[in-house]
């Protein structure tokens, strides 16, 4: 059973397709993340689902019925923007209760649901504050509570955490996942941040130039990016092709492949390493030391060193071990 079905959808801006024959489905209770660089059409896709952009061709169906003639406010979805777009003329509680009030729910129900939601997002003490007195993270929590107020069939999240700083983003991503699960919410999330997608989504679709290039669970996509661009977008550091790939896979004791993508920690300084490299540069990071090494037959790659004294200095030879779960064979080989 599917809740949302995007079927061969094309959306044009001034003639050029921003969304190009995209098909996706979202099942009830599932969080689907559409991940892609800015300008890839993911926001347009979301806006089309919300009913803010007309489709040039194809269809969007919810619970099996076509939405083409249903205006935004009758779709029963809720849209949350990266900067909240709270109504500053209303209090926090007023914002959260807004969707309930416009549906003329009884006052008692509104106030109990608002209290419940503010509790859920951890802002029970802020009910009477004005949104513009809150920090960015708090505003996003209010926006989330407002979007969840009437238990929308589908929650649409447009880069919900992107406007926040890194530490807050990490924490809120975990909270978001928990809150969505607690409410049993079905959600479509678009983001350019793969960590946000990994933290929140059950399934993800990778979008580029208006098209979906890959989809699957985060683990599937993560383990086998479809091509080099997908790999670097997912945070892989380097992509090796041909002989260097073979050398590296051989050292890891893995079957050979044409193309392999490496994370920055795919090579680790280790006494019993199968490869040897010369240190070109190093930089300390919290917990590890990040190196750039030149490995004969592979080329210039990144590596990490844990523990003291293992890395020597620039120009020193180090022994390197390949960490198999920090690399991915591309395109199925």
């Amino acid at each position: 059973m599917t809740l949302l079905e995007i079927d061969d959808l094309t959306v044009r801006y001034a003639g050029t397709p921003a969304v190009d024959r995209v098909s996706l489905t979202v099942r009830p209770g599932e969080v689907l993340a559409v991940l892609g660089p800015s300008g890839c059409g993911k926001s347009t896709l979301l806006r089309a689902v919300a009913g803010l952009e007309p489709a040039a061709s194809g269809a969007i169906r919810a619970d099996g019925s076509d939405l083409a003639r249903v205006p935004t406010h009758r779709r029963g979805f809720a849209l949350m923007f990266q900067d909240g777009q709270l109504f500053n003329a209303q209090s926090v509680a007023g914002n959260v209760g807004y969707p309930l009030r416009i549906r003329r729910r009884p006052r008692a129900e509104v106030s109990s649901r608002v209290a419940e939601l503010l509790d859920l997002v951890g802002l029970a003490a802020y009910a009477d504050r004005r949104p513009d007195e809150l920090s960015g993270g708090e505003q996003q929590r209010v926006a989330l509570a407002r979007a969840l107020a009437v238990r929308p069939r589908l929650l649409l999240l447009d880069e919900p955490l992107s406007a926040l700083d890194a530490a807050l983003r990490d924490r809120l991503a975990g909270d978001l996942r928990e809150i969505l699960t607690a409410e049993g919410t079905t959600a479509l999330l678009v983001t350019h941040d793969h960590e946000e997608a990994f933290a929140v989504a059950d399934r993800m679709a990778l979008m580029r130039a208006g098209r979906v290039v890959q989809s699957g669970t985060p683990a599937q996509v993560w383990a086998a990016p479809v091509d080099a661009d997908a790999a670097s977008f997912l945070g892989y550091d380097r992509v090796l092709e041909g002989d260097p790939a073979a050398v590296l896979l051989g050292a890891a004791g893995l079957p050979g492949a044409r193309t392999v993508a490496l994370r920055r920690s795919a090579l680790e300084v280790h006494r019993d390493g199968a490869l040897t490299g010369r240190v070109l540069a190093f930089r300390s990071a919290p917990e590890v030391l990040r190196l750039v090494v030149d490995v004969p037959g592979v080329g210039e790659v990144s590596a990490v060193a844990r523990g003291a004294g293992e890395w020597g200095e620039v120009g020193a030879e180090v022994s390197l071990r390949v960490v198999p779960d920090r690399l991915a064979v591309l395109g199925g080989g």
């Binding site: 009913g51 935004t72 777009q85």
Partner: peptide, 14 residues
């Protein structure tokens, strides 16, 4: 910001 209106519409406001 036009997105204010979009947010309201998506929350069910006519």
């Amino acid at each position: 910001d036009d997105r204010q209106r979009q947010a309201a519409a998506s929350l069910g406001a006519s």
